[in-house]
Design a protein around this nucleic acid. Structure first.
Length: 665
DNA sequence: ACCCGTGGGCTTTAGACAGCATGTC
DNA sequence: CTAAAGCCCACGGGT
């Protein structure tokens, strides 16, 4: 099937041909046959890099009206937005937490790119553009199975479909075990394929050799004399070196940030860049280092630049978003030979390499170490092989010995990925979405909430959903928390009467507090915590209510990210809390979860030093966090302080430091 | 006096979505 | 309260 044969405008055909797309890949052709261009619902479960974006573009361009592209990451949203915006005659918009087109523009855009949470939020806040959609493309739809975010995605899609029943849904999924269940839910045709534009072989290394799934082997002699690193690291280094000496690029996945940095530093010392330097890439690597130095002068940054100078980089969430974007771009432009990364890179933006080495396959979880999900390892391996640049891709899992080889082989090479299961039946998820449904006026009774949830993936997967009890509990707890109250149903607004007729208990509505919590997009639990703290503030001396107080109000909530509190620091933070106890809403003895509270005091302290003018470098050094960690805390603090201000207004507490602190962030 | 290897105890452990309002020729 | 692995440091043996 050729692009020219598709029902596209000539200018679009031209555009794609200019980009080198003339003949459709088999999965793309299958998607067209399934009706992507005819307004039909389609679920495509295909590997990454098999041309999913083009399928999305087909759906969006042939739809009879505005389209929405939903994806899980802001960086991904940016990437897609830029791509769609290049389409001739297409006016694209973007809406994510950190980057937003004007609301007035979104309504006029042909294609809007947004994160799933942003779509949910737009619905909650009554944004007009969500009602005129003709087509919704959902990328990475398998995230339906993710504990925190999956429920948001399924409720949002259910709501969109209910509001606009004729909307076309095109869902793109990684290869999972039960894509038919997703297709079944969406009344969609399923397209399944394992086809890739570049051959990929996956293997396991043990005992000096890799055995690949295509039957080939690769001998990897390792001089085990060097006691400074362990055997797995030796093997990883040798595999990376091999790929680079062969003129390719490599990605190495390890389990922790420290490991990623240590591996990068080790490879840097091997002077791999000399090997990769066929042309003028020395200057390329140096230019990357230069750009990284300009991006910010933290200690992490200079170590990163030092490694980049030799063609090697590390990558994890401790890096600032600038640093991460720079590393990703430089690697795509082949100005870097190697990235040593934590699992972040597996799910992020497109960073393909000739060879992928997965050194660590386990991860700490808080309940011991756990095997990485098969899907995640597959996504790491799937990064191997660049179309048009590599003759093939190779992914190698590193095992300790022959037993380990067999274990990894069975677990990851021959095994199917996990099933996608709904996580909607979770107390916190149901509280959040029940509140949102009621607050938006979408449901005014328990029965109506259940009805709204009947269009979810959860409901389609369960013969007898029986959410009644769980939703009932959610409603009861939300009433306890002052977010919901018994309403008067249809008689709402009629003055007089005591409200309670025969329908008592069946009608519910959101209180002002509940409505504000839903609109601010904080979880009900965060709303409760903030209100408790605000009430404590009301009883404090005005002089004691400082910006530190403001930060404490928002830091001990589930929506703020935890900050690790090391043993060495604990005593010092304790001292700090004692010294500032007058400014804190929680007494040293009243915290229910003292450890958790102390961690939030640490976060509050970091933020308050930040607004007092401390530099990124100082804070990063003093609190042993990465620049990216500081960035994310500042970002969340900005959001949560705004939410706290709105809630303070509702409960009638005046707290000026909330806004003064926010202004200084 | 110095170097190196060993062993035990201590320390640490991936990631990342969201509000709102506003400006200009 | 779970598990694995790196890091630091003290110790001991050899030169």
């Amino acid at each position: 099937m050729r692009v020219a044969d598709l029902p596209l405008a000539p200018e679009h055909v031209e555009h794609f041909e200019r980009e080198g797309i003339e003949e459709l890949y088999p999965p793309q052709a299958a998607a067209v046959e399934a009706g992507v261009c005819d307004g039909d619902n389609v679920v495509a479960a295909v590997p990454t890099a098999s041309g999913k974006t083009f399928v999305a573009e087909l759906a969006l361009l042939t739809a009879d009206g505005p389209g929405l592209y939903v994806c899980p990451l802001r960086a991904l949203a940016r990437e897609k937005f830029e791509e769609f915006d290049r389409l001739p005659g297409v006016d694209a918009g973007i809406s994510t937490g950190d980057y937003d087109s004007a609301a007035s523009e979104l309504a006029g855009n042909d294609i809007v790119v947004a994160t799933s949470e942003k779509v949910d939020s737009a619905i909650r806040n009554g944004a007009g553009w969500v009602d005129d959609l003709a087509c919704v493309v959902v990328d990475e739809v398998h995230l339906l199975g993710a504990a925190g975010r999956g429920p948001t995605l399924e409720v949002t899609l259910a709501t969109l479909r209910r509001r606009t029943p004729a909307v076309q849904i095109v869902a793109l999924s990684a290869t999972v075990d039960n894509p038919e269940d997703i297709a079944d839910w969406l009344d969609a045709e399923l397209v399944e394929s394992t086809w890739r534009p570049v051959d990929l072989r996956v293997g396991v290394h043990a005992a000096d050799a890799v055995e690949f799934d295509d039957g080939t082997t690769l001998s990897v002699p390792v001089d085990a004399d060097d006691p400074s690193t362990d055997a797995d690291t030796e093997v990883t280094a040798a595999l990376v070196r091999g790929a680079v000496e062969d003129g390719g690029q490599a990605l190495a996945f390890v389990s922790s940030r420290r490991e990623a940095e240590a591996l990068a530093e080790r490879l840097r010392d091997e002077r791999l860049a000399d090997a990769v330097d066929t042309a003028d890439s020395t200057s390329d690597a140096a230019s990357v280092a230069e750009e990284l130095r300009e991006a910010g002068g933290t200690e992490t940054g200079s170590r990163l630049a030092e490694a980049a100078d030799r063609g090697v980089a590390f990558h994890h969430a401790g890096l600032s978003s600038d640093q991460r974007a720079l590393v990703e771009r430089a690697f795509r432009e082949r100005r870097l030979a190697v990235i040593c990364a934590t699992p972040t890179l597996a799910a992020g933006v497109n960073v393909p390499a000739r060879r992928v080495v997965v050194r660590d396959q386990q991860r700490y979880t808080g309940e011991g170490t756990e095997w990485l999900p098969v899907l995640e390892v597959h996504q790491m391996c799937g990064r191997a092989g660049r179309p048009h640049l590599d003759p093939y891709g190779e992914a190698v899992l590193v095992a300790d010995d022959e037993d380990g080889r067999e274990a990894l082989w069975n677990r990851y090479v021959t095994a199917d990925p996990e099933r996608v299961e709904s996580k909607l039946r979770d107390r916190a998820a149901l509280r959040t979405h029940t509140l949102a449904l009621v607050a938006t006026g979408f449901a005014g009774s328990q029965a109506a909430v259940l009805d709204a949830l009947s269009g979810t993936f959860y409901a389609s997967r369960t013969a007898n959903p029986d959410l009644g009890g769980a939703v009932g509990d959610a409603i009861a707890s939300l009433i306890d928390d002052g977010m919901l109250e018994a309403g008067e149903g249809k008689a709402k607004g009629s003055a007089g009467g005591n409200g309670g007729t025969g329908d008592t208990g069946s009608g519910i509505e959101a209180t002002d507090l509940g409505a504000q919590v839903s609109r601010q997009y904080v979880t009900p639990e965060t709303g409760v915590r903030i209100v408790e703290r605000l009430e404590a503030v009301a009883g404090m001396n005005d002089a004691d209510v400082t910006e530190l107080t403001a930060f404490e109000v928002i830091c001990d909530t589930p929506d703020m990210v935890d900050t690790y509190l090391g043993n060495a620091e604990r005593a010092e933070i304790y001292q700090f809390a004692r010294a500032h106890s007058a400014e804190l809403t929680t007494g040293m003895t009243d915290a229910e979860d003292f450890e958790g509270w102390l961690e939030s005091v640490k976060t509050a302290r970091i933020l308050s030093e930040w607004v007092d003018g401390a530099s990124v470098e100082e804070l990063v050094a003093a609190y042993r966090i990465g620049p990216g960690d500081l960035e994310s805390r500042i970002e969340r603090a900005e959001w949560l302080l705004g939410a706290a201000e709105a809630l303070a207004d509702v409960v009638g507490v005046s707290m000026p430091t909330l806004s003064s602190a926010r202004a200084k962030l």
